[in-house]
């Protein structure tokens, strides 16, 4: 696995407060990497270190195998959580300024801005002032400014905050498209459904430490508790449920007499599913059989809580 960015036991302290404690990460090339964690966990500090806004007290960060240097700034696009624009500056002028700060020359920046303004259908905003725009509109400009210099690594901190669902979708599609073009993306958020949708890898930061990281699908596998949700059609609850309970570990049952439907959960170890299904199909018609995979949200809450209990 080729990593675009590697952090090696990065630590950072503000006065007496430890913001990051020996955090190590590998961000793979061409992937979407979710950086998760409760408020104040140290995510933003880590992102600021990657952007060379602050510097680590200890540890190293490597970009494409090279220790992080000022010139890497041009290869990284950062959309911070606390973001805004100059209120009294015109949209186009401001976007040009920010693009030039990232090292683009004026003509090239203008060309790309035109392209993006067309793409997001905001071409007529060029001469508007930021204070005339809504929050969502300003967010679009910020998104464009972040991606305009075609960085190899994009960092989005809560990119969807301030967007309505329609625009959030547009931005999500843009992020996916950027990924398909080969960009690596770090994605810091609390919104678990977007993690589920977008991220291939996640890392969980809690109380300044990394407590979990890896491929999302593998983490999910590890967090599976072998629970299956089953629905069967049966005229009456009592005899069937009794027989099942004798043989299997059954929980959270619910019978709906109107539909003649019995819902329950069953815990099955590897290899047991076949026997279970064979047994059940003799007794009743199976309406549904689904494995209950933990969501990223479940994993997040469970891991953080476990950690808190242990401490």
């Amino acid at each position: 696995m080729d990593s675009i960015l590697v952090a090696e036991s990065v630590s950072k302290q503000f006065g007496d407060h430890v913001a990051l404690n020996k955090v190590s990460l590998q961000i793979p090339q061409n992937s979407i990497y979710g950086l998760l964690g409760p408020n104040g966990a140290g995510k933003t500090t880590l992102l600021r270190i990657i952007n060379q806004i602050t510097y680590p007290d200890a540890g190293e960060v490597y970009f494409e195998g090279e220790a992080l240097k000022p010139h890497h700034i041009a290869l990284i696009g950062y959309l911070p959580e606390e973001r805004g624009l100059y209120k009294s500056m015109k949209v186009g002028e401001q976007a040009l300024y920010l693009a030039q700060l990232k090292g683009l020359d004026k003509a090239e920046a203008k060309k790309r801005l035109k392209y993006w303004f067309e793409k997001l259908e905001i071409g007529d905003w060029w001469n508007k002032k930021i204070q005339e725009l809504s929050k969502g509109m300003a967010q679009k400009i910020q998104f464009i400014v972040t991606v305009l210099h075609e960085p190899k690594l994009l960092i989005f901190d809560e990119p969807f905050s301030g967007f309505d669902p329609i625009n959030a979708n547009i931005i999500k599609d843009e992020i996916l498209e950027l990924k398909s073009q080969g960009t690596a993306i770090i994605f810091s958020t609390h919104r678990m459904e977007s993690v589920e949708e977008l991220c291939e890898y996640i890392a969980l930061i809690h109380n300044s430490e990394k407590i979990l990281d890896g491929k999302l699908s593998e983490i999910k596998k590890a967090y599976k508790n072998n629970l299956f949700k089953v629905g069967v059609e049966t005229p009456a609850e009592s005899p069937l449920l009794g027989e099942l309970k004798d043989k299997f570990e059954i929980s959270s049952t619910a019978y709906h007499p109107d539909e003649g439907l019995l819902d329950f959960s069953v815990k099955l170890q590897a290899g047991e599913a076949k026997g279970f299904l064979a047994f059940l199909s003799e007794k009743a018609d199976i309406a549904s059989f689904v494995e209950m995979v933990p969501t990223a949200n479940d994993i997040f809450i469970q891991t953080v809580q476990n950690r808190d209990i242990h401490e």
């Binding site: 911070p80 606390e82 973001r83 700060l101």
Partner: peptide, 18 residues
């Protein structure tokens, strides 16, 4: 102060040194 309150500061200093 204006750069702070309009929250543009972090955008800028991810491109240039403070």
């Amino acid at each position: 102060i204006e750069e702070k309150t309009s929250r543009i500061i972090e955008v800028i200093i991810s491109s240039v040194k403070p």
